[in-house]
Nucleic acid binder design. Structure first.
Lengths: 128, 128
DNA sequence: CCTTGACCTTCCAGTCACTGGAACCCTTAT
DNA sequence: ATAAGGGTTCCAGTGACTGGAAGGTCAAGG
C-alpha cells in the first residue's frame, strides 16, 4: 500500500506518517523503487496511534501503549495507570483554562467595548 | 535595576526576560558593564506581559495589547474584540479536552485494572 | 592583591509534534 | 515525448521558552 492510501484510510497526513517512521513508531517495507510499502498491520498500528493521539496521548505514551498492545502478557492495570495519569493531566489543563476563561469572561463583561479608551481589561493587566 | 531583581518582582525567569527583549517586547538600557538596566516602566511592562500570558494570550496578542495600552486614543472595543476572540479560543480548547476526558473516563471505568491482559482501553484504540 | 562565589553576558541546542517547501525521482496516461 | 500526479529526501520553521557552556564583572573576605 502506498503512503497516500494509508493517509486516506487513517486520516493521518503523509508527512505525519513519514515522521512516525522517522521516530521509529513504524517501519514500513520498501519497494524496488524506494517507495514505502505498508501492510495491513502498519495501517492498523497507524490507526491505533491516530486514535491515541486524538485522545491527547503524547507520542511517548503512544509508544508505550503500542508496546502494551503488542504484549500478550500485559496487565490491564498498566494501561489503566497510564490512562489515569493522562486523564489527570487533561483535567488539570481544563481547570487552568477554565480559570482563565472565568477571569477573562468577567473582564469582558466589564468592558464597555465602545470608542472610548477606558478599558477594565487593560486596567487589570496593568494593575500594580 | 538588574535582571534578577526584575525577575523577582515580576515572577518571570531571567531567561524569559532576555527572550522578551530578543523578540522586541522590551528594550532595556545597558550599563557600562554591558548589564541590562531596567527602569520602572520596563518592570511595569513585563508585569503586564506576565499577566497577559497568564490569561493565555499569545506573545503576538501581548504585543498588540501592549500597543493598545500605550495608545491613549485606543477604543476599548478593540481590546474587547481581542479578548473575546481569545476567550472563544480557550472555550474551544476546553471543549476538546472535555470530550477527550469524557471518552477517556468512560474507558477507564470499563477497565478492570488487574493482572489480566484484556483491556477495553486498548480494544478501543485498536478497533477496526 | 587574590580568590571565591554570585552575578551578568552571549550563543547554541533542544523541546513537541509536526508542517512547508525545495529539489528531484518514478509511474501512468495521452 | 510529455505532462500530471504520485513518491523520495533534506532542511528549516513553528511557539515560547529552557538548559547549558564559556566567559566577563562585582563585592566581600583573607
Amino acid at each position: 500500500m502506498n503512503i497516500s492510501q494509508v493517509s486516506d484510510r487513517t486520516g493521518l497526513p503523509p508527512k505525519t506518517i513519514r515522521y512516525y517512521e522517522e521516530i521509529g513508531l513504524i517501519t514500513p517495507d520498501r519497494g524496488a523503487n524506494g517507495y514505502r510499502d505498508f501492510s495491513d498491520q502498519h495501517l492498523h498500528k497507524l490507526a491505533f496511534i491516530g486514535r491515541a493521539r486524538a485522545l491527547g496521548f503524547s507520542i511517548e505514551e503512544c509508544r508505550i501503549l503500542l508496546a502494551l498492545y503488542e504484549d500478550d502478557t500485559r496487565a490491564s492495570a498498566d494501561v489503566k495507570a497510564i490512562a489515569r495519569q493522562h486523564l489527570e493531566h487533561i483535567n488539570e489543563k481544563i481547570e487552568q483554562l477554565q480559570s482563565m476563561a472565568d477571569t477573562l469572561g468577567h473582564l469582558i463583561d466589564c468592558c464597555a467595548g465602545d470608542n472610548r479608551p477606558d478599558c477594565p481589561i487593560l486596567n487589570d493587566l496593568a494593575r500594580h
